[in-house]
Amino acid sequence: MSGPVERTTATRRVSVDHALCSGTGHCAETVPAVFRLADRRAWLRPDADLDAADAQALVRAETICPWMAVTFERQEST
């Protein structure tokens, strides 16, 4: 294992689906503070501060992933 592939905080969830991920690196290049590339797959940085990460960049990472492996969800605080 080269790190986690899913993280949830009180307001956000980010994941990389390794059944789809083919390691193109689009996510790591778009949000380097959250994603990294190792062994031809994307992983979440264990030390990533998800709540502080740029939400628009996370949306872009989800949208541009050619293998549709990245998910970014925002939970509405009720």
Binding site: H18, A19, C21, R40, R41, P66, W67, M68
Partner: peptide
Amino acid sequence: QRRLIVRALSASR
């Protein structure tokens, strides 16, 4: 269209 095909051609598959 891509959503319907990515799984069949992913690295692990």
